[in-house]
Computed example of a mutant assay.
Amino acid sequence: MFDVEKIAIIGGGSWATAIAKIIVGHTHHIGWYMRRDDRIEDFKRLGHNPAYLLGARFNIDEIYFSSDINTIAEAYDTLVFVTPSPYLKNHLRRLKTRLQDKFIVTAIKGIVPDENLVCSEYFHQVYDIPYDNIACIGGPSHAEEVALERLSYLTVGCQDQEKAKAFTRVLASEYIKTKTSADVVGIEYSSVLKNVYAIAAGICNGLKYGDNFQAVLISNAVQEMNRFLNTVYDLKERNIYDSVYLGDLLVTGYSNFSRNRTFGTMIGKGYSVKSAQIEMEMIAEGYFGTKCMKEINRHMHVNMPILDAVYNILYERINPQIEIKLLTDSFR
């Protein structure tokens, strides 16, 4: 049986850093896989991540760093994956350690490209990990605000509710409130879709649409999300207005911390996709999620006009003004 408190972080970005800060505050020890030795050395010297959330300070004595993912995977029972979804497969290809007996937590708000699977499905289908040993973290939680210890609410999804509750105890603090859910797939898909809708909100912002229309856009987005989730996995206990669904959509669609909204705003202002990506220097998960969701929905046939509009703008290079005008005419 794994120890839910013997935890390692897989990934070195802003959300990985924020989650590490939450967890180490409780356990006072974590393992941490980062692929670059120079980043690890700078982290040890400075006492903070040299590339992300510079204000989040750590006691280096409480962290065991390694650039070898197998060293970390062998030594820790709970592995929290917080890598960008397009890079997950590359990290996992280096693994020689069995994962079946580990507790896998995904904090990745994206879909595994080419496979078109949310991360829990990918770990289950490719690595034979039982669903009872897979959890996800969701909810409105910008890494920047978590690092500043501003009040945030996280939901841990897992089919085994006892394991979910055990992991929430690791996350809970004065500034982190927690709850559990059995809706792992629903949380993961909503985490992907809210990034797509945040890009749409950003595009409209870049095109100078006002707050009135943004409210209509988000109202339609939550309905679109609900249609898709109910088609994929109709769960009676799901309430689309819970913070893990609607709350995450709102914060990603409206906040200036949202990289997906920022990316969309640049597209609305006339940037090409490539130029926006270069200038941001950070990954907007929604760009990849849009293509994956479009491909998935070709089999689901859910009415998703916002997803279609974002896809047409990003991948078919349709003029944003034309595409959003068509979208506005479909709203009521």
Rank of each mutant, 00 (worst) to 15 (best):
N220E: 06
M293W: 02
L53Y: 14
Y233K: 15
V184W: 07
I111S: 07
V105K: 07
E145G: 08
D77M: 04
L79M: 13
D308I: 04
D132C: 06
S191T: 05
D128N: 15
D101E: 04
G12C: 00
P113H: 10
V126N: 14
K163R: 15
V232Y: 08
Q321W: 08
A172H: 10
S272C: 10
I296S: 04
Y311I: 06
G286R: 13
Y287Q: 03
L117D: 12
A309T: 15
V192F: 00
G12A: 11
D114G: 05
H91S: 09
L326R: 15
L327Q: 00
T78G: 11
P140E: 13
K102F: 01
V24C: 04
I104L: 09
A201T: 01
V118C: 14
G13K: 10
A8R: 01
A20W: 01
R169Y: 02
D3V: 00
N195S: 01
F103A: 12
G139Y: 02
A309F: 09
Y52R: 04
S152P: 01
D61Y: 06
L235F: 01
F257Q: 11
A8V: 08
E145D: 14
E162S: 10
I10N: 03
Y87R: 05
Y197W: 09
V126L: 13
T27W: 03
V82K: 09
A107I: 04
L207M: 06
L95H: 07
G157T: 04
G186H: 00
G247V: 13
V273A: 12
V244D: 12
R39K: 14
I313E: 03
K44L: 15
I296K: 09
E281C: 13
T78S: 12
E121Y: 05
T265P: 15
P140V: 13
W15G: 11
T252I: 10
L229D: 05
D132S: 13
F331K: 09
L79I: 02
A73I: 03
V216W: 12
N226F: 08
T78F: 05
N303F: 13
E323C: 05
S330R: 15
N319V: 11
R93S: 15
A20S: 14
Y122A: 06
N226V: 02
H28I: 04
T71R: 14
T168H: 09
K163H: 01
T17F: 12
G12V: 08
V232M: 05
D234C: 09
V232I: 09
E144C: 00
A8Y: 08
G139V: 08
A8G: 02
I22Y: 07
G110Q: 09
T290A: 02
V105Q: 06
S275W: 03
L88V: 00
D38W: 02
T252Q: 06
I108V: 00
L250Y: 08
I218E: 02
E316L: 13
P113C: 01
D38K: 13
Y189K: 06
Y127D: 07
Y245N: 03
E62C: 12
H26A: 14
D234G: 07
H301C: 11
G47F: 09
H48R: 13
K294M: 11
N312S: 15
A201H: 11
F228V: 10
S255W: 10
V146C: 04
E145H: 06
E145L: 13
G186C: 10
I322C: 03
I267T: 01
Y122H: 07
K269R: 15
L246W: 02
S141Q: 07
Y311V: 02
E5A: 11
